[in-house]
Structures are given as structure tokens and as C-alpha cells.
Amino acid sequence: MATAASAPAVPSTTPIVTPIRVPVWAWLLLACAVFTLYFLSQENGALLSAPAAQMLHELTHDARHALGVPCH
């Protein structure tokens, strides 16, 4: 996996790569995206009411299995 991080891809004269400035709101957005992933893949009643969670579970059912997350 992380061996890729050491792949001999850097040319002999390493070009200067300018950093991209990441604003603070980007991290909030990242948190929202992680929450969305949780919601779609794992929410089973921790946040929603039982019938709503059951509905969500059934609708996302096939993708949950396909994504490999423990489903039931």
C-alpha cells in the first residue's frame, strides 16, 4: 500500500510543486462527507427512528453488501 509513496517516480531534478492552500471550511466539508459515508453505509437506528432506519437500510441494502461493510 504505502510503498507507492516511495515509488521511484521523482525525476532527477525534482520540480518544485506549489502547495495548494486548503481553507478551514474544506475540513468541515470533509467531515460532512465522512458523515455521509457513515449514514449511507452504517446508519441502522443510532440517529434515525427505527422505521426510518429500516427504510434506509433496505434502500441502501445492495450497495452496503457490495461495498463490503458489515450489513447484517
Binding site: 486548503v22 470533509l30 460532512c32 465522512v34 433496505e58 457490495a66
Partner: peptide, 28 residues
């Protein structure tokens, strides 16, 4: 369920794409 699975897959793709962009920019 089949349609729901496809929609879920696209939503997961968008969320992963957002995370990917933030991490890419941070580690660029």
C-alpha cells in the same frame, strides 16, 4: 433495492470524491 443500490453507489462516489480532493490538496 436495485435502484437504491445504484443511487447509494453514486452518493458514496461523491462523498469519496470530496474526501479525495481535500486529501489531495493537503498532500499535493
Amino acid at each position: 433495492q436495485v435502484v437504491g443500490g445504484a443511487v447509494t453507489s453514486v452518493l458514496v462516489g461523491i462523498a469519496v470524491g470530496v474526501i479525495f480532493a481535500v486529501v489531495f490538496a493537503r498532500l499535493h
